[in-house]
Amino acid sequence: MNSSLVWLQRNLFSTPLNSGLTLAALYLLWLVIPPIIEWTFLQATWIGDSRTACQSNEGACWAFVDARFSQFIYGLYPEAERWRVDRAFILLVILFAALFVLGFRRSRVVATILIPYPVVAWLLFYGGIFGLEVVETSQWGGLFLTLVIAGVGIVASFPLGILLALGRRSRLVVVRSLSVSFIELVRGVPLISVLFMASVMLPLFLPEGVNFDKLLRALIGITLFQSAYMAEVVRGGLQAIPRGQFEAAESLGLSYWRTMRLIILPQALKLVIPGVVNTFIALFKDTTLVMIIGMFDFLGIVQAATTDPKWLGTAVEGYVFCAAVYWLFCFSMSRYSISVERKLDTGH
């Protein structure tokens, strides 16, 4: 018999029940897939400047996404200044390419390249020096804002999470109980209540006259929230390090911080890369919540655009486009996490 027929018989029609399931699934696919292709591609309208341009066709009105594309990416960032955002992202790509060429092992080089980057990026985004026009953070938006929040969230929560994880495993009672209370407190409440707290309550706790920018408040909320989850991931890695490593380091006379920095953390952090990436995926999806406290991130700006009277009835197109972008980011990150996991799994 033909090998593909054997495969079909084995995998799809092995028993009467399986044959029935296969046929039912095929029927379902036949019901769903052709209309989706029809709607997405065959009957879609690709160009036009208002909803009326799409009325002649039955399918999707991609003209809406096309017309609003740059707004989806940059939000309300002034058009003349958008090159600054582009430059900052190109710079980041170049830096990462350089890192791959130089190799991650030279940590000094990595540090000297990466540490000034946030400052440079901030200066480019916000402006105010070198003759760059100031762009208030309230004008930041779209995918750009989403990436800024996710990036700052992950970078800032990582060291904080490591400290909390070390604190949770510390022998010192005070440090341990403070860390445990913070972690459990944050993990027990929804992110949205933390964001509400950051946007409504934080100003009450600051001295008079000191006022944080709304974006900064949201970033503080997200970072604190994320660091608790990061701490639990790092703790998993710390627990996986055999006791002998701690004891060996101690008997060599290394101090606590040296033990951690030179012996424990390099091993533990390598183990938790997949977990960190998964946390990052969760954070990336959670950034959408900032729209509830009135910021226009990627989802927020798409949502706002669908209520534009010129484009009424294009909600589905907006959401599908938005979902596709988020999906692409999250899916590729999860693939990366799985590949790292496979590489690290050397099979003990």
Binding site: I281, K285, D286, T288, L289, M291, I292, L299, Q303, T306, A315, V316, Y319, C322, A323, Y326, W327, C330, F331, S334
Partner: peptide
């Protein structure tokens, strides 16, 4: 489903 933000899915079901 896992790779699409929950808020977006809520909007989809509600508005769309």
């Amino acid at each position: 489903i896992r790779n699409i933000p929950l808020l977006l899915q809520i909007f989809f079901w509600y508005f769309a």
